[in-house]
């Protein structure tokens, strides 16, 4: 009796690590695949050049800036769809403020743009938090509403056009590098580290996990759940807002739809990384892996000369695999667990 339970336990442990680690294996798998493909086709390396690594890392960091705060929201059992246009709103607002102050003002204009851009993002986060925490609107619907509102606001303040700027300082944020590490990658990396710390090592993080599993558990433990939810949506909006600032730096222009094409990739990265729609699961490290999987697929297809449209198909397939793994996790572990 104790023998079989012990055996079941190690079985469960192996199964658990496989189910949790599949995204790592998958990332290595597609890297090997593209490397082999490139060597066979062109006789050249795919991965082992600075340009490839930088391009993949930049693509991943764009996804990450939307996905980092979203990870916390999804772990808490909610979702934030508004981030697609929170990014656009902060991009447009930053560009407008730089224009307003005048790019001649140098860093002063850029820092002003950053501050007001982030403030605009924070307002969206506060509205989301208010809808979900105070008015009890389901987050999917509430943030779909603010998705539309943020989109409209971004287009209205931008006058329906792209707001271009001519600021060397802003450009250096989007395109500069420090010791070969592109600045956007550096910023996304630092934010990922911060989000990882918050989720894994702070009381706030534990309460986020507990909230996703069972709201009553945190409520009866005396945690102010409403306040916690509002904070989560503000964090989500702020990381998306940083994405918008970097966009404006990269392209020397703010566009309302800056985040739109990345929204679904960001959601996908979180789920590929092991989060579950029902909440209570997911990690920042998982989301980072998820973002890199998508970035490698994007860049790998372009690099291999395959029609880039295959990226949509490939990412779609990976999302389905991720959901299947998540579903089978509960079933398989129930069979094997003690």
């Amino acid at each position: 009796m104790t023998d079989t339970t012990a055996k079941n336990k190690t079985g469960a442990l192996i199964l658990r690590s496989l189910l949790n680690g599949w995204s790592w294996l998958f990332l290595i798998g597609i890297l090997v695949f593209f490397e082999a493909y490139a060597r066979i086709q062109t006789g050249d390396t795919f991965l082992l050049r600075l340009y490839s690594i930088q391009s993949i890392a930049i693509a991943a960091s764009q996804i990450l800036l939307l996905a980092l705060g979203l990870t916390l929201v999804i772990v808490a059992g909610h979702i934030d769809l508004s981030i697609g246009f929170t990014t656009g709103l902060s991009a447009v607002v930053m560009a407008l403020i730089i224009r307003l102050i005048g790019a001649d003002a140098g860093w002063f204009a850029v820092i002003g743009g950053i501050a007001v851009g982030l403030f605009a993002a924070m307002v969206v986060g506060l509205v989301n938090g208010w809808l979900v925490a105070i008015l009890n609107v389901p987050s999917f619907i509430g943030t779909l509403g603010t998705y539309g509102i943020a989109r409209g606001m971004a287009l209205i303040v931008a006058g329906g056009a792209t707001v271009s700027i001519r600021s060397e300082e802003a450009r250096s944020i989007g395109n500069g590098d420090i010791l070969g590490v592109p600045v956007p990658v550096l910023i996304a990396g630092l934010l990922a580290l911060a989000c990882h710390y918050v989720l894994q090592h702070t009381k706030f993080g534990v309460h986020t996990y507990a909230l996703g599993a069972n709201r009553a558990s945190v409520e009866r433990a005396g945690v102010d759940v409403k306040r916690h939810l509002i904070q989560l949506f503000v964090i989500s909006a702020l990381t998306a807002g940083v994405g918008g600032l970097i966009y404006t730096g990269r392209f020397s222009a703010g566009a309302a739809n800056a985040g739109e094409p990345i929204l679904l990739y960001a959601v996908a990265a979180v789920f590929i990384g092991g989060a579950s729609l029902t909440g209570g699961q997911g990690t920042v490290i998982g989301t980072v892996i998820g973002a890199f999987i998508i970035a490698v697929i994007q860049f790998g297809l372009v690099f291999s000369g395959l029609p880039p449209y295959w990226q949509f198909v490939a990412v779609g397939l990976v999302i389905i695999v991720a959901v299947l793994v998540d579903q089978s996790r509960d079933r398989l572990l129930q069979g094997a667990g003690p």
Partner: peptide, 25 residues
């Protein structure tokens, strides 16, 4: 009112978690 995804220690301390400082954090 347990948080099923957390271990017994975190459930015991939920809302009153113990922390220690590393480099001030």
């Amino acid at each position: 009112a347990l948080a099923d995804n957390l271990d017994p220690g975190l459930n015991l301390y939920l809302g009153r978690e113990r922390t220690r400082r590393i480099l001030g954090l």
